[in-house]
């Protein structure tokens, strides 16, 4: 085969492959939604994180702003230390609160950030002080039943 024809075909092949890469990266994957790709780290300690996993989303007002980088047990405070990679284009005030939330009833768990009003912003490696751990369903149901029982007993007491 002529060298020029050969080069043409290989050129087409490489371009096709590159095009496939772009399709995968931007249409299928989240590279376009990934923002600048540069992140800074925030740390938060929760008493309970439920089913939260690495790479779980971090949202603020429902919008994805970062991902959970690592989850580690802190043996000094007996809490779960969660490190989050937050996109550098999003800055949060010092008094921002973090909570472990669930999307839907049985959906995946994520971290919700709620901005406060401080004028100082959180920097790389800073700790979020205001935290709210995961709601454990068993505990919730237990509490509910306990309350119900208490209600009915006080109601009975009142009747007497």
């Amino acid at each position: 085969m002529e060298r020029s024809t050969l080069n043409l075909w290989v050129g087409i092949f490489v371009l096709l492959g590159f095009f496939a890469f772009l399709v995968l990266a931007f249409k299928v994957g989240n590279l376009s939604a990934g923002g600048s790709g540069q992140t800074y780290t925030l740390v938060a300690n929760f008493d309970n994180i439920g089913q939260l996993k690495e790479r779980a989303p971090v949202r603020s007002a429902g919008v994805l702003v970062g991902r959970v980088k690592s989850v580690r047990f802190d043996p000094i405070h007996y809490t779960a230390e969660v490190r989050m990679a937050i996109d550098t284009q999003f800055k949060f005030p010092k008094d921002t609160s973090a909570s472990v939330l669930t999307s839907g009833i049985l959906g995946e768990q994520y971290i919700g950030l709620e901005a406060g009003g401080d004028d100082q912003m959180l920097k790389d490696g800073d700790q979020i002080k205001l935290v709210q751990g995961a709601v454990v369903l068993e505990r919730l149901i237990g509490q509910f039943l306990f309350n119900k029982a208490q209600d009915s007993s006080t109601a009975k007491g009142a009747q007497k």
Partner: peptide, 15 residues
């Protein structure tokens, strides 16, 4: 060199 290009084309085509 060919293999990754082919694999990406396969995935894109499959999607």
């Amino acid at each position: 060199i060919s293999m990754p290009l082919l694999a990406m084309l396969f995935s894109a085509m499959g999607i």
